[in-house]
Design a binder for these strands. Structure first.
Lengths: 219, 219
DNA sequence: GCCGAACCGTAACGTACGGTACGCCTGAGG
DNA sequence: CCTCAGGCGTACCGTACGTTACGGTTCGGC
């Protein structure tokens, strides 16, 4: 489990196939896991036979859909030039804000829901894929920032993984599970910004290096 | 959504019905959401007709099963007598440890999985029930402790809800979503204890009152 | 011993849906 | 114009499963 799944979807998929997957994605958001092949075919204006020829079976279609969405959210890593407390704080806040926006988006919720369902009866690796492109991709992008902060003497931790997980917890808190379980969490742009700032300050309070001024501790 | 669901299951259910629900629960853990009425009937050594007479339909059975499990984990609140930094720390650690044990248990994972699935297509309130007896029940039990800590001058926060959510995040971090998505997270008794202690210390570092000694900051 | 209620086991029904087959259309190549 | 591959639409098949119906059995009350 949890191998990177490096295949770049945009290479091996034709324009038309991508359109079909987009349709499947929209339908997944609307209908959840109980979308039917017929519905996908109708929505995508293609025949079921084509669906089966391209994607094998229903699980194949779901797999391709999830990977397709994953391939769309690739983001460039942050360059670590001139790191001071200000830019580090900004980076962390930006990560937190982006992450909150992602997990509260309709498509993320829908995708996580199907992945969780399928993780129960292990017929495919949807859970692994979502995990890989969600939580683990985030870690891979954030860890260099944390380590750069450490080398710049701004942060103090033993294990980047542990530090990351703490940051993850401070940012996400109970939001994701509540959303997945259908709770209506108020997440406007403003509250996201506030939460990102709060989480960042708390993280800095926990892992900021004792040497050097940490400046403002909001509260 | 999210009304308390105060009905006490152990009152209105006969011994036999509880046994049937226990069987359904075990099956739910093993099979996930794709358990069949036939399988439940066979496992419980009862007839399908009885199942339908007692619980209406499949969703009714699932609902009753989830509520039945929920009714089993009622826990007494903590009495707030003589609160010092030691007992407060112990309480928090105990909460954290209990919570980690719960969310990493097979039945919790299975229940959360079905609830998440069903939250997608809103045919019932499984998500609300799980939320109510999980995250919100925890808050209800923990908040008095936090407020007692505040009144004792040990903690400093403006909003108990916010403080609780931070604690929740520090304890859970990425564990629950990883488990739900099928990742094998190493959670032995020892690591749970360590995580609970770490989360508690981090929480105290963030919300411990500046006045008064906070003693050991493990790190 | 008899009755009715509750319940077990199982057969049967209806339907939804995954998967397949087939006829028709279009559009590129010759 | 002809051909043919690729793809659309749709009818069709098989099956799994929710739901119902029914005969047989146990058990408390008379």
């Amino acid at each position: 489990m949890l191998q990177p799944a490096e295949i770049d979807a945009s290479e091996t998929l034709t324009e038309r196939q991508q359109a079909v997957l987009d349709a499947a994605l929209r339908l997944l958001v609307e209908e959840g896991d109980n979308l039917t092949m017929t519905a996908v075919a109708r929505r995508a204006s293609c025949s079921k036979e084509t669906l089966y020829k391209w994607f094998g079976d229903r699980d194949g279609l779901l797999n391709a859909t999830v990977q397709w969405q994953a391939s769309k959210v690739r983001v460039a890593a942050i360059d670590r030039e001139r790191l001071d407390i200000g830019s580090l704080t900004a980076s962390l806040e930006r990560f937190a804000s982006d992450w909150l926006k992602v997990i509260s988006s309709d498509t993320s919720i829908a995708l996580n829901r199907v992945a969780v369902s399928h993780a129960g009866s292990g017929k495919d690796d949807l859970g692994a894929i979502v995990l890989q492109n969600g939580r683990f991709a985030l870690a891979k992008r954030l860890k260099p920032v944390l380590e750069a902060g450490q080398q710049a003497g701004l942060l103090d931790f033993e294990d980047a993984e542990t530090a990351f997980r703490t940051f993850f917890g401070l940012v996400g808190r109970d939001v994701q599970i509540r959303l997945l379980l259908g709770d209506r969490v108020e997440l406007t742009g403003a509250t996201i910004g506030g939460d990102a700032a709060r989480a960042t300050q708390q993280f800095l309070a926990l892992f900021g290096a004792k040497t050097g001024p940490l400046a403002h501790r909001a509260g």
